[in-house]
Amino acid sequence: MRTPPIVTLPEWEAARERLLVREKEMTRARDALAAERRRMPWLPVEKDYSFETRNGEATLLDLFEGRRQLIVYRAFFEPGVFGWPDHACRGCSLVADQVAHPAHLNARDTTLAFVSRAPQSDIERLKTRMSWPVIPWHTITDDFDKDFNVDEWHGTNAFIRDGNQIYRTYFINNRGDEAMGSTWSYLDITALGRQEEWEDSPQDYPQTRPYEWWNWHDEYSDAEVSEGWLAKIAESGAITPASQPTPDKDKKDDAGQPGCRCSD
């Protein structure tokens, strides 16, 4: 293998700083792209769709679980897929392995769901074997996959609802799915985004201050923990009652968010 040059620490740091300029440009470009997604037109979903869930039959509206947004990944686990019946598609399994705890998405009024054509008994067996217990994973029973461009290949659809009316807001597939898994990557493809005040979003979109909604995934309902966290970030200087960080403040990082010091 032909390796890069071997250098001193100052030379290495100089090389990293040069590359960091381009990385920051990429971060800003990614934020700008997410802002464009939040301005995408919405496509009404006119058909009714039915799924089998671990709790019985459900509609697409039911999959929102009462939240405003829904992200649906079409995973291939069914007869005819390589690995059946012991495993799902290797690529889809890699995606599932990367998924962060859904509680963080839920805290942003967003539900994540996987859907496949395998029966629920097989899906539950697979989730147990592969240690994916927290991913809601449902069975497609109609033309949902065909209608949303995921009948022959994986893909991720984003939806939003206004009351009972559902709209399709975005879709990614192919290499776009490679980046999925983190809370941030999922939120960045939704119509409402991360819902933090530093974001460039249309007027009156729901937004809160950075950090204040973050919590441990098992304690989002614990008000005392949330109050303690607000006190901690105020103490760190990341957020103060009198000064709300914005994307043009010096203390922000290059994702647009203010710096955070969380250690004791």
Rank of each mutant, 00 (worst) to 15 (best):
P5V: 05
P5A: 13
I6H: 02
I6G: 00
V7N: 11
T8Y: 02
T8E: 09
T8P: 14
T8C: 10
L9R: 09
L9A: 10
P10A: 10
P10Y: 13
A14D: 11
A14Q: 12
A14N: 13
A14M: 09
A14F: 11
R16I: 13
R18K: 15
L20H: 15
V21K: 15
R22C: 13
R22W: 15
R22Y: 15
E23F: 15
E23N: 15
K24N: 14
K24F: 14
M26V: 13
M26K: 11
T27I: 13
T27R: 12
R28H: 07
R28V: 10
A29W: 05
D31V: 00
D31K: 13
D31P: 04
L33M: 03
L33R: 09
A34G: 05
A35W: 02
A35M: 07
E36C: 11
R37L: 09
R37N: 02
R38C: 00
R38W: 03
R38E: 03
R39W: 01
P41L: 11
P41D: 00
P41E: 08
P41S: 04
W42P: 02
P44E: 08
P44W: 05
V45E: 05
Y49E: 06
S50G: 06
S50T: 13
F51Q: 09
E52T: 02
T53D: 04
N55A: 04
N55K: 07
G56R: 11
G56I: 04
E57Y: 08
E57T: 06
E57K: 06
T59N: 13
L60S: 03
L61G: 04
L61D: 08
D62C: 01
D62A: 04
L63W: 06
L63Q: 00
E65W: 02
E65I: 06
G66Y: 00
G66C: 01
G66W: 04
G66T: 05
R67D: 04
R67P: 01
R68W: 12
Q69F: 03
Q69T: 05
I71K: 02
I71Y: 03
I71A: 03
V72L: 04
V72Q: 05
Y73E: 06
Y73T: 02
R74Y: 03
A75E: 03
A75P: 01
A75K: 01
A75V: 12
F76W: 05
F76I: 08
F77E: 00
F77D: 01
F77T: 01
E78G: 07
P79V: 09
G80C: 02
F82K: 11
G83P: 02
G83K: 14
W84M: 08
W84V: 06
H87P: 00
H87A: 08
A88P: 04
A88T: 00
C89N: 11
C89E: 07
C89M: 04
R90L: 11
G91R: 12
C92F: 09
S93T: 14
S93V: 07
A96E: 00
D97Y: 12
Q98R: 12
Q98N: 14
V99Y: 14
V99K: 14
A100Q: 14
L105T: 03
N106A: 06
A107R: 08
R108V: 03
R108L: 06
D109Y: 11
T111P: 01
T111R: 01
T111H: 00
L112N: 05
F114M: 06
F114E: 09
V115F: 00
V115I: 09
R117D: 08
Q120A: 09
Q120W: 02
S121T: 07
S121P: 05
R125K: 14
L126D: 06
